[in-house]
Simulated assay, not measured.
Amino acid sequence: MNNPPKLDDVDRRILRELSRDGRISNAKLAERVGLSPTPCWNRVRALEEAGVIERYAALLDQKALGFPDTVLIEVTLDRHDDDMLHRFGEALAELPEVLEAHLLTGEYDYLIKVAVAGTEGYEEFLRHKLYKLPGLRHSRSTFVLRTLKRAPSVQP
């Protein structure tokens, strides 16, 4: 594993601005972080090449898309061999309702964050998608009442 690049204060300011608005123009970004446009552009490119900036994306409003509810699902698998973990993980990644999926230590094997349309949408997801995945032994679910913080990445 490579060591993370050393970031100075200017790099951190650039990253904070880009995390707030990934579509900001280079000229505006340079102005906000106190650089001229060319050095700012060079720093952004260096951060991209170093993998600090992984990609740019639009954050979509799941409620506006018809999936107002979020459910956290803890999953236990039948087996824990490499083949089962791989098959389950790949099948899970194909489900469009799955926002996040984490392989865990502890009592459950996975924690899955899912967007659904109410209890009917949740039942549909469970019966016709999650329960059809290979190796699933047990699941436990919790509906999110309110999201207090949502960040696409850590702030530098």
Rank of each mutant, 00 (worst) to 15 (best):
S19L: 15
A57L: 14
K149Q: 07
P156W: 06
T147E: 12
E107T: 11
E74H: 14
S25E: 07
A64S: 14
G135A: 12
I53Y: 11
C40S: 13
N42E: 12
S19A: 15
D9L: 14
M1Q: 09
D11T: 00
V116F: 05
T105R: 11
F143L: 10
K6W: 02
A117Q: 11
Y56F: 15
A151C: 06
A101E: 03
V33T: 05
G22Q: 09
I14T: 07
P134G: 03
C40E: 09
L95V: 10
N2S: 14
L77G: 04
E48G: 06
R87V: 05
N26P: 01
R23N: 13
F88K: 03
E31W: 02
W41H: 12
H80M: 15
L99S: 01
L111T: 11
T76Y: 05
L59Y: 10
R79W: 13
T76Q: 15
A46E: 08
R12Y: 02
R79N: 11
E74K: 15
L103R: 12
V144Y: 04
N26H: 07
D82W: 05
E90Y: 04
G34D: 05
S25V: 01
G66Y: 06
V144R: 03
E31N: 05
G121Y: 03
L103S: 08
L29M: 13
R43D: 05
A30Q: 06
